[in-house]
């Protein structure tokens, strides 16, 4: 299925998610056009991580629909193997970066990056190696290709994780608090890699606590609280002149602490 350029890359319509009795997403709508960068901010427990995880179905939503480049992501009509095949195909088109990196500790840095293209796209060893080295180069870690994750710093791990996600040439990248587990001095190297992706017009959905970064890099910013989007606007407007009292309160707390 080829999509015209005005098909949104990611689209959420009326997304609801419950954990038991607790409704964590109360009907979220979101449209991410290709090449756009959306930041989602909000206090912990606001549902922002759940929202991001729903996009690639790590959380299965209860209501609503999610589309990736026109393809329906959530498919309650599919069961068993048919569902597995569908969701694996969808996920191969999305890169996800986790707060705790989740690198594969038993594989070298290069193998972490090349495993998916080799096994899922049938890429041969030399082609995968070339791609892997190119991506490691891009995140500034070509010299660590043979190192194992246990010998890397947090910032280096996260850069490898980004390279690993890029290796499948995803249509969109999802960042789930990619810098929250890092020591402050390691945050910048990861932010730089993400800025590089932004310059290349990678479509990105970023859940973050880094307000300054969100303001600098994104085209659109959303403030979530209590499972709803309280306010969404351009970053300039959202961060400088928030309309809602809840947004103002949250930003006062966070920007105040950062300044």
């Amino acid at each position: 299925m080829t999509q015209t350029t005005d098909t949104p890359m990611v689209e959420l319509k009326g997304v609801k998610k419950r954990f038991g009795d607790l409704e964590v997403l109360k009907g979220i709508d979101l449209r991410v056009d290709r090449g756009r960068i959306i930041s989602i901010i909000g206090p912990s427990g606001s549902g922002k991580s759940t929202l991001l995880r729903s996009v690639n179905n790590l959380e299965v939503i209860d209501e609503g629909s999610i589309l990736l480049d026109g393809m329906q992501v959530n498919r309650p009509d599919l069961k068993g193997l048919a569902y597995e095949r569908h969701i694996n195909h969808i996920r191969q088109n999305m890169g996800m970066v986790f707060q705790h990196f989740n690198l594969f500790p038993h594989l070298s840095t290069l193998e972490n990056v090349t495993l998916a293209p080799r096994k899922l796209k049938g890429m041969n060893a030399s082609g995968a190696r070339e791609l892997g080295m190119e991506l490691l180069e891009r995140v500034g870690l070509a010299d660590k290709a043979q190192a194992y994750p246990s010998s890397l710093s947090g910032g280096q791990k996260q850069r490898v994780a980004i390279a690993r996600a890029l290796a499948m040439q995803p249509k969109v990248m999802l960042f789930d608090e990619a810098t929250s587990a890092l020591d402050p001095e390691l945050v910048e190297e990861v932010n730089l890699v993400m800025k590089g992706l932004a310059e290349e017009h990678m479509t990105m959905l970023i859940v973050t606590h880094e307000m300054t970064f969100a303001r600098d890099v994104s085209d659109w910013a959303m403030f979530m609280d209590g499972g709803v989007v309280v306010e969404a606007n351009t970053p300039e407007n959202l961060f400088s002149h928030p309309d809602q009292e809840r947004t103002q309160h949250f930003l006062r707390k966070h920007l105040g602490a950062q300044a």
């Binding site: 790590l58 986790f98 594969f104 499948m168």
Partner: peptide, 27 residues
């Protein structure tokens, strides 16, 4: 084996069995 390993593998598009084979069992 940490649950994050499973999630990372699944998010790349690996199926359950492939995840077991390449990621979980070796660890």
């Amino acid at each position: 084996v940490e649950s994050g390993q499973n999630e990372a593998s699944r998010s790349l598009g690996f199926g359950r069995l492939e995840t077991l084979q390449y990621i979980i069992l070796p660890q």
